[in-house]
Every structure is written in structure tokens, then in C-alpha cells.
């Protein structure tokens, strides 16, 4: 086994082009488990934990660009206004994992249970990919193509995730068995977009990849419209509409039975999480602007 240790993104992309068999490793919190248990023995690694370009958080106007190598602990400290992302970051692993694990790792692993991924989907994030051939930006939807399958080319690296910051409350919540180190049985991110009068919902761990719930989103936005809640947050939405919203989110899930939970349980959990998330968002909208 060989470990390549480039010190800049340019060098790393040259390594990727010359040695596509070398697996990129950043925090190592997914890959080291595979290695420790002998499930995987790559011929080579490219250590991308020392690339300064991947450790950058940039804000330009209403756009956030989050370097793929920024660990969750830094996201919690440095992006406090990205509420849903911070909530997801706080549920990743444990403190020991959050100092190492990265959003780039969630993306690269491409598991539908990656906690940051429903948030990126609710943010309509773009994934920035670079190779010696150049840089491209693709939507999260085009990047996450299947369970643990991504659109990353063999010579590419994930450089960043970027999104236009939605104005409005958002959240992330998940269901699991312990308050740490939980691979979610179901995860949900809800984001209100006040400017577009939209409600976005994304689901994790309940399908082959991250799913949005378009019917529920349209219904949710419509419910706020009907009650006049877009203009007047005090109006809220009726209990029956919250229940219907939950049903529609549950219907968008494509869960399976596995060791962590049954499909029926997962679908039920999606409905519960959705109702709660919309209730929290409506309560947040009633708070005076700070």
C-alpha cells in the first residue's frame, strides 16, 4: 500500500490523474473502519487532509461555499447561521468524529444515511468537482446517483459544496438508537424559502439516495398560502394540514427493511419528523426578527 501526500490541490489532482486507483482520504472516519476490519485494502491512498484549498469557508453575497475538507466541528463553530446544517453537524458521530469527519466525506461515501446530505439537498446545493482537466459544478441530485454511487470521475476530487442561502427557518432531525454514533434510521431536513414562498423537504436513510418530497413541498407551501401565513406568521396552518403534510412526506420515502429498521417504521418516522419540522418552522416564523 502506498500513501500519496500532496500539499496542494494542484498536486493532488496530478496524483488523481496519474493514479486513479488511489483512494482519497480526508478525516478517515468512514475509510478507516473499512481498513481496520479488512473489508477494503486499496492499493493506495491520497491523503487530502493537508490541502489548504479544501479547508476554506467562503461567503460571497448570499452564497456559501463550504470546503469539502472542513470538519463538522468547524461547521458548528463557523457557520452558526446555517441552522439546519449545524443541527445535522451536531448529530454526526461524536465529538471525536466531528473533529475529523467532513461534508466532502459524506458526499464521497455517498451513503443515503450521510447526515449532511439531506441538508445539502434542502439547500439545493451544488457540488464543486475539480480535476486536472478543469472544474465543474453539478447539482447534488446529479452527484448522488445511487446508494454509495456518485458522479465523481476517477481523476476528480470533491472541492466544495455551495448554496444560495435561503432566507427562512430550517432544521435537521433524525431517528436512531443512541445520542451519538447513530446511523440514521430516517433523517429529514426542512427549509423554508420566504422569498420564493416555498417549503423544501429532503429525506435521508429512506431510499437508495437522498430524496426530495415535491408533493409535500407544494402542499406545504399551499397550506401557508391558504391560511395567509406567508404574509402573517401568526396565522400558522391548521392541524389537519400538518397531518396531511406528514402523510405526503411519508409517501415520498422509498424505504427498505434492513438491520436498522423496517420500511414501515421508516415511513412512519418520516411523517412524524415532517410534522414536527414544519411545526418548528412555523414557530420560528412567529419569532420577532433579531
Amino acid at each position: 500500500m502506498k500513501v500519496y501526500r500532496p500539499s496542494s490541490l494542484g498536486e493532488a489532482l496530478d496524483v488523481r490523474a496519474a493514479h486513479p486507483e488511489a483512494v482519497p482520504i480526508a478525516g478517515g472516519t468512514d475509510l478507516m473502519v473499512e481498513l481496520n476490519f479488512g473489508r477494503r485494502r486499496p492499493e493506495a491512498f491520497v491523503d487530502i487532509s493537508r490541502l489548504p484549498e479544501l479547508g476554506v469557508i467562503r461567503r460571497e453575497g448570499d452564497t456559501v461555499s463550504l470546503g469539502a475538507g472542513v470538519p463538522y466541528a468547524r461547521i458548528i463553530r463557523e457557520l452558526p447561521d446555517q441552522v439546519a446544517l449545524v443541527q445535522a453537524a451536531r448529530t454526526v458521530g461524536s465529538p471525536q468524529i466531528r473533529t475529523r469527519g467532513t461534508v466532502g466525506g459524506n458526499l464521497g461515501t455517498g451513503s443515503p444515511a450521510g447526515d449532511a446530505l439531506p441538508v445539502l439537498a434542502a439547500y439545493d446545493a451544488r457540488i464543486v468537482l475539480a480535476s486536472a482537466r478543469g472544474t465543474r459544478r453539478i447539482s447534488w441530485r446529479d452527484f448522488l446517483v445511487g446508494p454509495k454511487r456518485t458522479a465523481l470521475a476517477p481523476d476528480e476530487l470533491i472541492v466544495a459544496a455551495e448554496w444560495d442561502v435561503p432566507q427562512g427557518p430550517g432544521s435537521f432531525s433524525k431517528v436512531g438508537t443512541r445520542n451519538a454514533m447513530v446511523i440514521a434510521i430516517a433523517g429529514l431536513s426542512l427549509q423554508v424559502d420566504e422569498a420564493a414562498r416555498g417549503v423544501r423537504v429532503a429525506l435521508g436513510s429512506v431510499g437508495p439516495t437522498i430524496l426530495r418530497a415535491p408533493d409535500a413541498e407544494a402542499f406545504g407551501a399551499g397550506a401557508l398560502d391558504e391560511s395567509g401565513a406567508w404574509a402573517n406568521p401568526e396565522a400558522g396552518v391548521p392541524e389537519a394540514a400538518l397531518a396531511r403534510f406528514g402523510e405526503l412526506v411519508a409517501a415520498a420515502a422509498k424505504p427498505i427493511d434492513d438491520v436498522r429498521g423496517t420500511a414501515a417504521y421508516r415511513r412512519h418516522a418520516c411523517g412524524v419528523l415532517a410534522r414536527r419540522a414544519l411545526t418548528w418552522a412555523l414557530a420560528d416564523r412567529r419569532l420577532p426578527a433579531s
Partner: peptide, 8 residues
């Protein structure tokens, strides 16, 4: 703070 088992 890290889990040293997960650091290459």
C-alpha cells in the same frame, strides 16, 4: 480530540 483508531 480524535478517535485515534480512525486516524491514518
Amino acid at each position: 480530540l480524535v478517535a485515534s483508531c480512525l486516524v491514518l
